[in-house]
Computed example of a mutant assay.
Amino acid sequence: MLRFLKSLSGTVHEERCQPSNGGDGATHCGDDDGGGGGGPRSLTVWRKSLFVGCSGFTVINSDGNLVYRVDNYGGRRRQELVLMDASGIPILTVARSKKLKMVDDWLVFKGEISSNKQKPICCARKHLDILRPKVKRLARVYRDPYDESNGYVIEGSYMNRSCKVLDESRNVVAEIRRKETAMEGVSFGQEVFVLIVNQGFDSGFAMAIVLLLDQMFL
């Protein structure tokens, strides 16, 4: 399976750096992992675990090296998802809040949850507006103190693998895009896509946002 993912590096179009449509003046590149150049980092995300009998995610960089993984044993949706590095060390945990609310909250913890007293580093809430059902906002991620001016907003469509993560200044810090192929008429579908992380934004946290969206919308 990992060999399949590595082969994707040679089957995509070369994507040149181009300005974002978000009006922030930032540039977004294709298969550049940002290693050493300080530019945007492009990761290929496969919505599948490398292990038999598991669901999850496998994430590689533009060199075909494993960067992150999520292995959900039993193949079922869980209340907690642990994002690990290539060696299996937990980086972040995404968990659904246990509080009963009309709109569910998701919490992000550093590493693996060790106790009920562990405090999350941020929380996320799915956007729900019955008066404006076509609004493009998907969710908001709140940092401490969890107010409107301190966090990130996600806009676009996760189902179509076309999303942008914007900070409080409306700067695009990360994007989710479809994986394009060099062969006409060939598509990777929705299971393989690209996560572009702009300079200064943590790629592990960007992947945690992918997990949040997957829990919210699939």
Rank of each mutant, 00 (worst) to 15 (best):
E14A: 10
G56W: 05
C163F: 09
R177T: 15
E112R: 15
S203N: 14
S20V: 04
P120I: 02
G204W: 11
S62H: 07
R76E: 15
S162N: 15
D63F: 11
M102F: 01
R3Y: 06
W106H: 13
G37S: 10
L107M: 07
D105A: 01
V194S: 14
E191T: 10
F205A: 02
D167K: 12
V103Y: 05
E14V: 15
N198T: 10
L100R: 06
G38W: 01
L138V: 07
K164L: 13
K179N: 10
D85S: 04
G36R: 13
L2N: 05
F188N: 09
G151R: 07
G30N: 06
G156I: 02
K98H: 01
L5A: 05
V165L: 12
D105M: 10
F217Q: 10
D71A: 02
S55L: 03
E15Q: 14
S149D: 05
N72F: 10
S87T: 09
A95I: 03
P19H: 11
K48C: 00
G64C: 09
K164I: 14
V67Y: 11
D33T: 11
D24E: 02
D31F: 13
S187Q: 02
M1P: 02
E80Y: 08
L100M: 03
I60P: 00
R170Q: 09
E15H: 14
S7M: 10
S169I: 00
G10C: 08
K110H: 15
Y158A: 04
D63A: 06
M216H: 04
M183F: 14
S187D: 06
